[in-house]
Design a protein around this nucleic acid. Structure first.
Lengths: 245, 245
DNA sequence: CCGTATATTAATTACCTAGTTAATTAATAT
DNA sequence: ATATTAATTAACTAGGTAATTAATATACGG
């Protein structure tokens, strides 16, 4: 995508402009300054932030470099290629979080209600700690030859998915879970009620109706829906519409 | 995104290779053949298909041309610029569908259950008739400065959204809708339970567990969840786990 | 205090991408 | 028949992108 990207905002790193930004920083190793490992992590964080905001395909190496206040050559220095940057992102940042989700499910395999509640809560705490996670994951769900999906499958197979699936089937057989649900869609539904709105609200910064929505409200809404459905839990006294005028 | 796109599959149009594809088609107006309006529509359809598969940003004009079996100059001939192609897509294809969704909601403003059931069904029939719709919309939801969102807001404001919001609030006040739901998230939840899985299953073509999932199963699942929540509608007789061995 | 390893930029390369134009052929109206 | 209009490709331009290299400046161990 060239020729139509005149000026991304690209939240400039504070550390970038040291003194007078007029003198444009000659080459050479900087004096003192942060260690290389910090710089590397800073680049990873910057990349994750931009990927979450604009999507992976839309984010050029130059944009990441600019947002981090360095030249594109730095990315080559630390990650060699764009592909390898993605590998690093996935291995070092994405997979650990993803794994912690699976654990919640497996740790509560004896009670559907608790498992679901805990899962929703975990989603929320992840969203708070890693603001890039929900967006990047949701984008991955919608991408066919996702940069993520193949690698994730590659790196921890679908054993977790299968066990979760069987767990759901068992719950249904025991009458503890709504038997009309499709087992293979339960997890996707949880995503749709948590990660999806979490991502969406970040894109709504200028919408007056839904300005004050945060993780708390989303969790409350999702749990209310998951536990009781859309209709009122109270048995809905029917002919109450026409009250005294 | 350049330099890493060696060979997209790009389902070649059947009409493209007329006889021996060895002779590479000289310039000039083709004999007989489809009318210009058909050609234009064919290009629009091709673009929508690719946008749905790979996302808008990932799809170059050259890719669209190749998939349609023409040269990139054809796109310039019919649409002048990429931006205008997007405008055409939105105005001629996207907005009418989008509008038909709003209508369903407003036509059933007197009964929440019916409104929601009809809405889910409408989503499913849209997915069947316009396979590109769900994917493109969901991608739009996740994009900050979405190419779509601004234009859509621009073209039919948020009057519909506001009236839907107030409708939900009213239902809650009347005790006919779960009062713990967040009004501004109800529509997003419907998306998350319908459009999201509809899009996702298309990306799962090689997943054995969820191969046979279609619109029918997704609708059934979504309605089951919306009407009763995850727990079993039957009051769940508790101590039935240890039956006779 | 000196050589080597490390961190950084400027400059360059090969390749995409959007958009434009001129040439070419068929259809259509006169 | 002939001129005009429509539809199409090849060839080109200007600018972006990922990746690489050479130069440069600091850190650090002996």
């Amino acid at each position: 995508m060239a020729a139509r990207n005149p000026d991304k905002p690209a939240a400039r790193a504070s550390k970038a402009a040291k003194k007078r930004s007029a003198a444009p920083r000659r080459p050479g190793r900087p004096s003192g300054s942060a260690s290389a490992i910090d710089q590397r992590n800073r680049l990873i964080d910057t990349a994750l932030t931009l990927f979450a905001q604009q999507g992976i395909a839309d984010t050029t190496l130059a944009a990441i470099a600019k947002a981090a206040g360095v030249t594109p050559a730095m990315l080559h220095y630390y990650f060699k290629t764009r592909e390898q940057l993605l590998d690093v992102l996935i291995d070092e940042r994405f997979l650990p979080v993803r794994k912690s989700i699976e654990e919640v499910f497996e740790a509560n395999a004896d009670d559907p209600a608790v498992a679901i509640i805990k899962l929703v809560q975990r989603f929320m705490s992840i969203a708070e700690e890693y603001p890039w996670f929900a967006s990047i994951w949701m984008r991955g769900v919608l991408s066919e030859r996702s940069l993520l999906k193949d690698r994730i499958r590659e790196r921890f197979g679908d054993a977790h998915q299968k066990s979760a699936f069987q767990c759901i089937v068992r719950w249904q057989a025991e009458g503890r879970l709504n038997a009309d649900l499709e087992p293979s869609l339960v997890f996707m539904s949880l995503l749709g009620l948590t990660m999806l709105p979490l991502t969406a609200v970040k894109m709504w910064r200028d919408d007056p109706l839904r300005r004050e929505l945060g993780a708390k409200e989303i969790a409350r809404h999702a749990l209310a829906l998951l536990m009781h459905g859309v209709v009122s839990p109270r048995p809905a006294k029917k002919k109450l519409e026409k009250q005294v005028p």
